[in-house]
Nucleic acid binder design. Structure first.
Length: 447
RNA sequence: UCCUGGCUAGCUCAAUCGGCAGAGCGCGCGGCUGUUAACCGCUAGGUUCGAGGUUCAAGUCCUCGGCCAGGAGCCA
């Protein structure tokens, strides 16, 4: 009996019999010869049926097998440069085929491109498509690389609650849900405050889960539900934080390059640009970036562009500003020392410059922009209390958070990384909605 | 919330100045022993987003409405 194998391991079986279980992705019939491109989740494999090798009724069925039919195929594995697929270069002769189900002929997803509305309405089927499968494979690798790296660096993965009592940062819109006799609970937009509590029990911690933002953002960089990684190490200043970030990002990129070569190739990703992503990453202060942008704006002649690039010290970067800054380097770029006024209340002020805080954003190159945002946290109890009062935040809600500064406070830092933004960048794709299996956007909760 | 663009066959799109509603893909039928989103031939497939208006004539122009997109703001 032939061994059942994964398509991804096909190269180990050349010259032997093997069985694969999967779905017909495409069929090309040539009269007395039929090619079935079969996917099994691990890859795509060409299976070849010759008329002379099969009983007439079986061959007739294979020749008419609809796209997406589920099959179990057994036959000889052959090395053949002509064979397409992922990894490709190998094919399976059809000696025996069991058809579990002939798919309906009205399968709506074409192998050609669809418009976004149609594709998203059929996301449950769209994910079967090779391009989407490749992107989501990269996502899987990013997720596992994250855990692999942080676990290896002595971080502990402590989960933080998704149902939370109130706004962590006050400003951003939250999803609200009724909560028994307590009134309302809110879907977490960050696990950071809880991470900070976990720090004092575990030292270096991270949370990794879905995050919710009810902002009415309608761009190719936004989802209302996205996955965020938030590492928070104790005894770590801003410089130490940047080192954690560049170590993590480098490990993610190298892991994807190593294990997702075929997927990136299929997506047409220029791999050489990712190979350049190694620590250390360039660093730039907000002051330097502001100066650069102001100069750039002065030199701009197109009035529309000039308006978009308009900038003065104290502003937060808009998308067009970010894009310009990402063009400066081939590697991700750290920008640190933002004005306190545009950042959150818990960020440590810069020594001797209270108008600036110890915050850092990491911008992915090639125009992709912000993938991480973080800071050193205020560790002094009085200073934090003052910040909370100044922001007009409800002191009572932050009692437990303030406690953390009373019992063994230490310098600590943390950042958040948007998983889908990283995947979008690594895959070189246009839109973040393809970087998550079932995207949630302002206009879409189906399917 | 604002700005811009779009809506025509199952899908992706064309239709000149307002003048007969088209193609490719997919489905169906036929052909082909090396296809790579195969190719070749044939068939079927239309409430042009909705309502109203202008006109001899509207997919095309005007008004209102709906839906989608991506950009601004905000952010990861």
């Amino acid at each position: 009996m032939a061994e059942q194998i994964s398509v991804s391991h096909i190269s180990n079986y050349a010259g032997r019999e093997a069985t694969i279980k999967g779905w017909v992705y495409n069929r090309t019939d040539k009269g007395k010869l039929v090619f079935l491109l079969v996917r099994d989740g691990s890859g795509f494999l060409q299976c070849v049926a010759f008329k002379g090798d099969l009983p007439p009724d079986v061959f007739e069925k294979v020749m008419r097998l609809p796209q997406e039919s589920s099959v179990i195929i057994t036959g000889p594995v052959r090395e053949d440069k002509r064979a397409p697929g992922i990894p490709g270069g190998y094919e399976l002769g059809v000696r025996e085929i069991e058809i579990l189900q002939e798919a309906g002929l009205d399968y709506p997803m074409s192998l050609k491109d669809h418009g976004p509305d149609f594709a998203l309405d059929h996301r449950h089927l769209w994910i079967r498509k090779k391009s989407q499968w490749a992107i989501l494979k990269v996502r899987v690798k990013v997720m596992s690389a994250v855990r692999e790296y942080l676990d290896g660096q002595g971080f502990f993965n402590l989960d933080t609650p998704i149902l939370t009592p109130a706004a962590a940062e006050g400003t951003t819109t939250l999803f609200e849900t009724p909560y028994f006799d307590e009134g309302f609970a809110y879907l977490a937009q960050t696990g950071q405050l809880y991470n900070e509590a976990n720090i004092f029990s575990f030292g270096k911690v991270y949370c990794f889960g879905p995050t919710f933002r009810a902002e009415k953002s309608k761009t190719r960089r936004h989802l209302t539900e996205f996955w965020m990684l938030e590492p928070d190490p104790a005894f770590c200043d801003l410089e130490g934080l940047m080192e954690v970030e560049e170590g993590l990002i480098t490990h993610i990129v190298q892991s994807v390059l190593r294990d997702c070569e075929a997927e990136l190739k299929h997506l047409g990703r220029e791999v050489s640009k990712l190979k350049a992503v190694t620590a250390p990453f360039p660093r730039m202060t907000y002051d330097e970036a502001a100066k650069y942008l102001i100069e750039l704006g002065k030199g701009e002649t197109d009035p529309e562009r000039k308006e978009l690039l308009k900038f003065e010290w104290g502003m937060d970067f808009g998308a067009p500003h970010e894009v310009e800054l990402t063009k400066l380097n081939d590697k991700p770029l750290f920008i640190y020392g933002y004005p306190s006024a545009v950042k959150a209340f818990y960020m440590e002020p810069w020594p001797g410059r209270p108008e600036v805080c110890k915050s850092v954003d990491l911008l992915a190159p090639e125009g992709y922009g912000e993938i991480c945002g973080g800071s050193e946290r205020v560790s002094d109890h009085e200073a934090l209390l003052n910040r909370i009062r100044k922001e007009g935040l409800p002191e009572e809600s932050f009692k437990w958070y303030l406690d953390l500064r009373k019992y063994g406070s230490v310098p600590h830092s943390g950042f958040g990384m948007g998983v889908e933004r990283v995947v979008t960048w690594l895959c070189g794709i246009e839109h973040i909605r393809e970087a998550i299996p079932f995207p949630r956007t302002i206009k879409r909760v189906y399917p």
